[in-house]
Design a binder for these strands. Sequence first.
DNA 1: TTGTAAGCGTTATCAG
DNA 2: CTGATAACGCTTACAA
Lengths: 335, 335
Amino acid sequence: MISQKDVAKKAGVSFMTISRVINNKGNVDEKTRAKVLRIIKEMGYYPNILGRGLNTNTTGSISVIIPFTTHIFGTEYYTELLNGVERACAENNYEILLNPKKEEITRLDYLKSFLERKSDGLLIIAPRIDDEQIRLIDEKSAPCVVIDGRQAQKNIVFIDGDNIKGGFLATEHLVRNNHTKIGFLSGWEFVRNGDDRLKGYRNALKKYQIGIRPEYIRKGDFTYASGYAGMMELLKLAERPTAVFAANDLMAMGALKAAKEMNLKIPDDISLVGYDDIAIANYVVPPLTTIKQFSYEMGYTAALYLIRKIRNKGEKLESRIFDVELIERDSVRKL
Amino acid sequence: MISQKDVAKKAGVSFMTISRVINNKGNVDEKTRAKVLRIIKEMGYYPNILGRGLNTNTTGSISVIIPFTTHIFGTEYYTELLNGVERACAENNYEILLNPKKEEITRLDYLKSFLERKSDGLLIIAPRIDDEQIRLIDEKSAPCVVIDGRQAQKNIVFIDGDNIKGGFLATEHLVRNNHTKIGFLSGWEFVRNGDDRLKGYRNALKKYQIGIRPEYIRKGDFTYASGYAGMMELLKLAERPTAVFAANDLMAMGALKAAKEMNLKIPDDISLVGYDDIAIANYVVPPLTTIKQFSYEMGYTAALYLIRKIRNKGEKLESRIFDVELIERDSVRKL
DNA sequence: TTGTAAGCGTTATCAG
DNA sequence: CTGATAACGCTTACAA
């Protein structure tokens, strides 16, 4: 392991000069600087972040925390979000630290990587609404931005898609196609985006004075399997819905499969709307009408905000809600 | 920032006792241990990895290096691989460090995170065949495992899919369906898996004594766009192929689009085989015949190997080549 | 069983 | 412009 000392010895200067050169700090004679730089290259010296971090309390990485999926890289929704995060980090020379999870994350674990000084801040994606850890973040004064988890606490910056509007648009689209019996395949209600999409669904029905039937709302968890199961339940109802809004595309895919198995055609026999606009939505048969989120931009913005928070300790940043769009394809039929 | 000192003061012991307790090292009186543990919890003390690392030369994280895509999370191929990596890391308490890339990675950058002591080892995915950095890894004695980059150097452990066999199987499948005019949409030839799939294609043609026509081999780069472009070129040939093998599913999707635009039906007018078996392959119309890789297992194994290498410095590990499978769906027609 | 001293590689501070 | 010294939080080695 090559250290400043080694470089210093070879260059015939003290190690402080090396430190000054690599940090561009203080005044160093141009000749000395050039020489040091040359030797650094020759020897293949790299500054040791651990040593530096011990002084500066800095590592140059941010932790991305995904409390819920088993697999971080499991869904395209996260994928796009993370692509945006990556871009922002690349532009600002930050690295991304991922905490693989055994099972469910427990109490203090959100903060662990930060408290252990492995990262400079936290990007938390879709935490539980009632999450107590969010409170601790403030207490430990960890720089933090939350994605998809609109918080009650004023001091926590969040980046959200407009899930209420999205839920509304999807449902309204079905209503405008003369559907009144509209099922909803929900995501987790204890995650903000799941809850908000349901809220949007409710708002739309209310606006158009359509009664809400509890049996039309089936609990799911954003997975393909739960979309399949929920759809099956809806289809077995005595008076089954003529249209279904799934809280994400993955569940819509599951619903599609259920319909197929029951020999029902989409959209002829039953209409379907998803959420997210993942790549498959466009390729599935029939192409899925869905709500598009700007996930990449959301991830990018969130990471940028976090980095700014880390760099300018005091800075107050405004939370932001990103717009959503209805993407009309072929899975909805006019009644 | 709460340090061992703070805990020690409160517990009325020296900070060495704290160190012993959190590392389960040396003998500590049960009573003292219990007390220290209690206070650690009370105060919310977390060991500072930077301080520890400075002594142990250890951080508890591995770097995942993806030299080529613009976006780390861009393709499902990487996604599955990373899911496997995540699992292995979760089981062994390692974190994953990702180096976002501005553009192309330059010379020493593979090793940067390791040399800066940000990570304990390197997992490199699909490096350039001629990559000079691979040599440096040895020189710097960085623990390292390479995925999809079968190396000439004996001392570098790699985990590969059997790309030669995969390329062979895909091509042979077409031959068995009486195709002789078979196009190939290549990936990068300077990445091992790209090169090997082409090799498999060649092997199959040779075995069945079908001449290789250079104009049937179009250069691509694993992207949707390049699949589209390559297919277009093939379709404009005077004597166009009756079947096409694309070096990955993404390119096959691009090819599909090109065929559609040229009013050619798959598989009626032209047969198509992909590679990877990504999720969309099963949903696209027609469902795509393809070669399945065991990406998850590959990622898992690679990470596990790396962790073993890190932990047992001396251990020699055998490189492994994972099998592949032909998945027959509906994109190939018998002539 | 517990404590003391030294050192890991770096930066901050102050002196020259 | 440059260098010496202390400090960051921790572990290793040794002493009590």
